[in-house]
Design a protein around this nucleic acid. Structure first.
Lengths: 185, 185
DNA sequence: GGCTCCATGTAACAGGTTACATGATTGG
DNA sequence: CCAATCATGTAACCTGTTACATGGAGCC
């Protein structure tokens, strides 16, 4: 259903951007829930331009570097809002390779399982710290980000959701590790 | 990295199955974290057979329906265990279309946002109930599922993880909806 | 001059979905 | 006998990743 299309339209509804700028956004907090490589972004920009949902101006950087700065058109805004309003069903599957391994825990011995789980716990804990640091920076730079009418509210929500998602994962990993460690053969 | 390959090997490490049986597993609790359509499963089974990781016997159902019952080979078991042991990095992105919309909340008006969030809250709440019912059935049928040495332990872990994931989502949705509703223009 | 980052593109391949296609079994 | 389910496959298409490819800008 071409979600990347809407990700691009949504970004351009906030401010004009180059393809390169969009890639940067996908590496930032938005990237917790959606991302794309530049090799996917550029062809999509070309297509959206042909469809009339976006337009670009050429800006000259320095002496001769030409960059394409994209803006959303009125047709693009209509398209974006149609998608934003639509109440889709929640997906049945959210792919998670670690949980697939977990499903097969009976194929592992106790030591292997403990190693796998403690590594995952370590990685997820690091991620929580990284995300909390991002949230601190955001709320220090713009304390109004926590209110609905701030332009940064979406950014704030994505960070808080990502933090709570990871914290929930961490709690479950700790609880499960205790069960594994206490089941000495 | 051919995760479906390992999903199939993992399932066959528990018991012999037909491609159709595997599809059923992906529609069940495992499907919370991994799934595949039959159109992807059958070609993968063919490939895994060619690679020597699995084998099949033909069983006759009724008068003449031939079904292929697959088993994992020793080579397949080695391949599976290599993957199970490997400690990969956690993914940067877990795609979530609803959270992408959330990032663009400043493009919506307050009423639209409230509608979107309350619908999502409703759907996620229903999912929690469905998952809790599945967990009840599992623990009633096999109370030992909660211990490491049960063959159902993986099943139990996947369900508890899915339940906590959805509950965390629900809590965040409720909290965010309160902020949206209390921000009357 | 050289390194990092900015900036844009294409090609080949891998993974995954939808649609097309067929036929047997089981149970009411 | 009819419907739901069991059972297996292919083809076309879409999405997304990795690799290939190029060149300018900014800074030390």
């Amino acid at each position: 259903m071409r979600v990347l299309k809407y990700a691009i339209l949504g970004l351009l509804d906030q401010r004009e951007l180059t393809g390169y700028d969009m890639k940067k956004h996908f590496e930032d907090s938005l990237g917790q829930f959606w991302s794309a490589k530049h090799s996917q972004i550029y062809p999509e920009l070309k297509r959206l331009t042909e469809e009339g949902f976006i337009e670009f101006d050429i800006h000259i950087q320095g002496k001769k570097l030409e960059k394409k700065v994209y803006q959303i058109t009125d047709a693009g805004k209509r398209e974006l809002h149609e998608w934003l309003r639509k109440k889709g069903p929640i997906p049945d599957t959210t792919k998670d390779e670690f949980m697939l391994k977990t499903f097969f825990i009976s194929s592992m011995d106790q030591k292997e399982a403990a190693g796998l789980f403690s590594h995952q716990l370590q990685e997820r804990t690091k991620k929580v710290e990284m995300l909390e640091q991002k949230l601190n920076i955001l709320t220090e730079e713009d304390p109004s980000a926590q209110s609905l009418h701030s332009t940064q509210f979406g950014h704030y929500l994505v960070l808080t959701r990502a933090i709570e998602r990871e914290k929930g994962y961490v709690r479950w990993l700790q609880k499960t590790l205790e069960v594994i460690d206490s089941s000495i053969v």
